[in-house]
Design a binder for these strands. Structure first.
Lengths: 205, 205, 205, 205
DNA sequence: TATGAATGAGTCTTCATTCAT
DNA sequence: AATGAATGAAGACTCATTCAT
């Protein structure tokens, strides 16, 4: 390895690092102020640079959310696929998916908030068709788990699975809006309580 | 009643009606596009008038959301107060509050969507401090019901009531984003299934 | 005279009276807020009617200032012409013109304020060429008095009459901006002191 | 000085220079068209840029007049304070204040025109309370000079000093509306003739 | 890499004016 | 004569984006 190559390698790594850093900042700001209401200048301020300077790193404001969301979704689907591909029963799959979801919130909180708040509006844009696709897969995945559980006699049959699916989906993701990594409850503990509540209900025996 | 009085009465009523009509339209648009992302022109288009014409009826875009949200919240608290003031036990109160909430969604769907999506951002504005106040009351009301239920042995004691409160709050309101008045399930039926799920869980006996 | 004619006569008189009343109100508002900064609605408010209603009486906002200014200027020139046509010497003419000017301020204060503040801007509009013409006549009138006085040995010859003219003109009219009809000094008393100051100076003997 | 420091110094200076330049342009336009009647676009046109570009340099149209007026007033009061602090007699103080005033007009003509035409309207805005304060100080300063002169037997006692003060104030400032730096009379010459007129009167001996 | 300055399209809002009643 | 509702043009201001340095 020539010094030149080592240099450019470390430069490329540094550049990638800077990019990731900037995206983390942007995600934080988009999540707290709302994507539409956030100005590029606000993101730049938070990153300690001037508005125009961001355009050296990204093509547009849209490109930033795009990268934030697609990075998160790619990782999320990898985790979900690992779960659904491991041949677990419905109840165990339910358990694992919920747990993974709260871990995602832990790891990608701002991205999840953006996903939750802006998906519907962004989805109208051709650039974000993958969001629509992701929502469709999400729905199918959950309905399949729920239906499997009902068939196996693990879940009640007198409830509308479409309705249950929506309740689960919403409650899980919306947790991103109040979750703090440094709060008293860990992501796994929250998942555990959530599972208890949904599976057994809050009624005392 | 003299003709004069009937006239002015019908005029005032017509004016109030137009105002309500316009607010309903605005709420619909704000809910579907997002408040910040909605232009005044879009609201006006939906109402069949020009952008500037809205200002004959309202002081500002902000004044419109304000009226939409405060009208909804006033009615909502009247309903909640009726419930909490009627001396029911924790479980019955839980039941009644959930049912009322879904009825609110049925009656004020767009307002609830706006409340859900924009409250956090609007609350920073002094004009909307009543939102913060409403959120506080909401929290206290639910925590009191949950705590009462735990003490009475009606609800499980091994779950974090703060967490349960958040799950309930989010799931109930977020339902506004997919609820359609003309869907296959009525608001009361949705409430019923939701109550079953949360109280008894989805596990089959 | 038939009753009909009497009726229409009194109606016409009433209409003219209302018009004058409205113009007086408009002049007051234009004078205090500035013509450009005054909205038609503000004038209407002051007159106790709605914005659109003024258009029953006047063609436009511009038509209002027009009538305000031309009425005032017509009366002013009638008074000035009476003075300059009465064969007085320079000093007496000076005296009389100043006195008449302060009387004008007394009678037409708001109109004078508008004239003072807006003439330059309005003059660009073809409708108001009479303002330019009036300013020209005004200048000629004063220069003629001053020149006549210098030639007659009544006024000092070592001062620039163009300059003196401007000082006189400005000070006289600008007085409209602070003059109150109910103040401690009458218009004639103010004129007297002004004449003393300009003719004899403020130095003690 | 390192090149770095020279660079940043020249940059800062250039920025301040541009700002001053833009304010001079804005002042010219505000003075000739009137503040309320001037559009931001007109100012931008005169500066050779687009309307929105001005907002890179200034927060608002209001911020521009603010800076124009406060810069002028700061300098003006420095000059007046120098005069009143130098222990001159009333007559000499009178002389010096008038001279300084015309020099101000020479140096800040557009600002003075704006001050003269818009002060009353702007003063209602909390941002411009310093205008009210400045007017108060101005009045006190002149009354004190005039009263001192009367007591010392230098000025006539049979005139109302409040009236004289107003005449002086108005005439001096209103001169800004016709003064041209390139006219035949210098600021000092105009001041001299003005002083002669007011102190000795225009009557020939 | 980042800055400073500018662009230009678009946003909210204002306001003179119109017109059916 | 006056109201209520709307028009439409224009105005102040914002903001994503560009680009020379």
């Amino acid at each position: 390895m020539s010094p030149r190559r080592r240099d450019s390698a470390s430069t490329a790594a540094a550049r990638a690092g800077r990019r990731t850093e900037l995206l983390a900042t942007a995600a934080e700001v988009f999540a707290s102020r709302g994507y539409a209401a956030t100005t590029v200048r606000e993101v730049a301020d938070a990153a300690g640079m001037l508005g125009g300077s961001l355009y050296y790193h990204f093509d547009s404001k849209e490109a930033m959310v795009d990268e934030i969301l697609s990075t998160f979704l790619t990782d999320m689907w990898a985790a979900y696929d690992r779960v659904t591909g491991s041949g677990l029963g419905a109840r165990e799959t339910f358990h694992a998916l919920i747990t993974e979801s709260f871990r995602m919130i832990d790891r990608y909180r701002p991205a999840v908030v953006i996903y939750q708040n802006e998906s519907k509006h962004l989805a109208a844009n051709p650039r974000f068709t993958y969001l629509v696709e992701s929502m469709r897969r999400f729905r199918e995945m959950w309905l399949s788990v729920l239906d499997r559980g009902v068939l196996a006699g693990e879940f009640r049959a007198d409830l509308d699975t479409g309705l249950i699916y929506r309740f689960i989906r919403d409650t899980v993701w919306v947790a991103a809006s109040w979750y703090r990594g440094d709060g008293p409850l860990s992501a796994d503990e929250i998942a555990r309580q959530y599972i208890v509540m949904v599976l057994e209900g809050i009624t005392a025996d």
